[in-house]
Design a protein around this nucleic acid. Structure first.
Lengths: 364, 364
DNA sequence: TCAAATCGAGTAAACCTTTACCAAACTTTT
DNA sequence: AAAAGTTTGGTAAAGGTTTACTCGATTTGA
């Protein structure tokens, strides 16, 4: 049964000079082990040899094969990032942040977009598992419980950003909406607004719900009574914002200010106001949420609540690293701070004299 | 010297039931070769066995280790994508397209952003080489010739999208600017405009140059004399657009229409018009270029020339695949078509009676 | 000067697949 | 019924690295 005759066949790629660790070792007159140790900065390697090795590496422009490294070391240095759709203006900045921070820590990122399709979500996850991503940040909903079980079994570190269920093995990143929304409401109140409407996001979303709750709380904190007519459900799109604004601006009592659950909604409000010839901020103040890039470019530029995507991304990477490097305590909930960005879509309510303002907190 | 005693040491991960191809083979009662062939859809494998294997695979939710596969097969199924900055609104749609098409063909994508920093570009490329990307699409400038030489040596397929030098080993994707710009100019001419200004991009950019040239040509094709005063250099940012528009709208003869080298510039024009109380499109028509997502949301929505990012991305992936799979002819230049998207920022020139219009090609 | 201790480098196994080659089991032909 | 041909499955090598273990060389201590 046993065939003991290795006949030297199976010679591959005859001519091409291979550029592997053996070549480096040969040219530097050391063993491959030394080359490997040099590359990985193992301290026991002699300075002189290290120098020689590095010179050869530079000379050849040798780049170690990361697949082989990963295979044997069990570390892929790959981090996954799953978003719903890249073109949603909220995500690019987040991706950028994630990439920056990941690269900073020596990781590569693998991107997947789900387009809100659970099936695509599944294949995304599968791809990440196959590539042996060391952790995955999920920034979209639609991940199913059974899938989660499997992943838990596989011990794939996961961090959910502002979505997803609470689970013992998953880190959660939650944004401090209350603070952000309160900042917005207080800003409006300081300008003299009392008639403040709110356009929420789709209430199936955890984050949209939190924002709505935060709004109600903030309004009451300012001593204003909640008018249920002025709370409308949108869907976080511009079109949804327009529809909601139409309802708000053309029926019954018209508010003097609208706070929105996200920036896209606020942009919709801007459009609707334009359509019905209301001037922003003279007739209507508008505040968004997220501080997406686009808010700098609307007419007028939008006052909004920034949530630092960079921080969000940084925290996500950190949470993932905490799992992998097991030096930090994993599983804690990370809170993300927000900040008010005052631009030109907010002003004194119609009919209010400027001298009535009771705060210095006004847009320039 | 020879130590013939393999003492069975070096047992790793004792307890954890490994989930590898051997496990699958054992449970399906076949050899690992059969499992491998089943997974890779080698036609010679018996249907019954294949079925059994697939069942076990599903049962275990086995995912083959792509690092090992790549290592032995020499194919990483990884495609690199290098952009300047993800937050530039032009890129997300491109990334999305690239990802879609790549996944469609069984590839994963690796993203890198350079922030216009040649140093970062270098590390991006290095990362792609280490990961053994099978090809890289470069959508930013700043790649240096010596680096290109090295890459050519490594035979890393590259495709440049609208940037970069001509080189025998590199595929180029060029957009058909002339067609796009002409469409815009003809649209304006059909509306009755004769006083058409152009705000270019930074002329160091190949693409910006092409667009300017295309504009001049298109204008002359329409029988209009070029007024050098009405050609201003911008920088493809909103701020640049505002500055250029200020010059155009507040000095000397004021044009009735402005065509812009990209959408961000056009958005800047919209802002400047708003600032000086010119109404768009009543007093001034504005056309952008690129059809970035945001143009749907400006006030008024921007007429622009679409260049299909999806097509661009598709072509990029195809060009890369052409190199790798060596079934198609590589190195040919790919041309990307454009299309006019009429929205609400263009109209009849001020003072023109509607009945004077000489074409049906008007915005609704 | 010699033994012990320390240091640094080399050998070879292991990581998990794919796949060339071989062998066994059928099928068909004579 | 035997020979030839055709499937189909199994064995083992290879891919490029990391790293446990080993061993020679050098230094230190007596």
């Amino acid at each position: 049964m046993t065939d003991q005759t290795p006949k030297g066949k199976r010679r591959s790629k005859q001519k091409t000079e291979r550029l592997d660790i053996h070549t480096v070792a040969r040219l530097a007159n050391v063993s491959i082990a030394t080359v490997s140790r040099t590359i990985n900065h193992v301290p026991t390697v002699n300075k002189k040899m290290a120098k020689r090795v590095w010179e050869v590496i530079k000379e050849l422009d040798y780049a170690p094969n990361s697949q082989a490294r990963s295979l044997v070391s069990g570390r892929s240095r790959l981090l996954g990032l799953i978003v719903s759709e890249i073109t949603n203006p909220f995500f690019p900045e987040l991706i950028q942040g994630f990439e920056d921070v990941a690269v900073e820590h020596g990781y590569e990122i693998l991107i997947g977009s789900t387009n809100y399709d659970p099936e695509r979500m599944k294949t995304c996850i599968r791809r990440m598992v196959e590539r042996k991503a060391e952790g995955v940040a999920v920034m979209t909903f639609g991940i199913e419980e059974p899938l989660l079980d499997k992943l838990a079994e596989r011990k794939l570190p996961l961090v959910f950003v502002d979505v997803g269920p609470e689970r013992p093995e998953i880190s959660l990143l939650r944004v401090d909406y209350h603070r952000g929304i309160r900042q917005g409401v207080q800003h409006l109140a300081a300008l003299g607004h009392r008639d403040i409407a709110f356009i929420s996001g789709p209430l199936i979303l955890h984050s949209a719900n939190s924002r709505l709750t935060a709004f109600k709380r903030a309004i009451q904190e300012c001593g204003i009574k909640i008018n249920p007519q002025w709370i409308v459900e949108g869907d976080h799109t511009m079109e949804g914002g327009m529809t909601a604004a139409e309802q708000l601006l053309t029926h019954g009592n018209v508010p003097t200010a609208v706070m929105c659950s996200n920036d896209m909604t606020a942009i919709g409000v801007l459009h609707e106001a334009y359509r019905v010839a209301m001037r922003v901020p003279d007739d209507l103040s508008v505040i968004g949420f997220d501080n997406i890039h686009m808010t700098r470019m609307t007419i007028p530029p939008l006052t909004t609540v920034q949530m630092s995507c960079y921080d969000l991304a940084r925290e996500a990477v950190m949470a993932l690293r905490a799992h992998v490097e097991k030096s930090l305590t994993p599983n804690r909930e990370y809170g993300i701070k927000t900040q008010l960005v005052v631009r030109e879509s907010t002003g004194f309510p119609h009919g209010t004299m400027e001298h009535l303002r009771n705060s210095a907190d006004v847009p320039k």
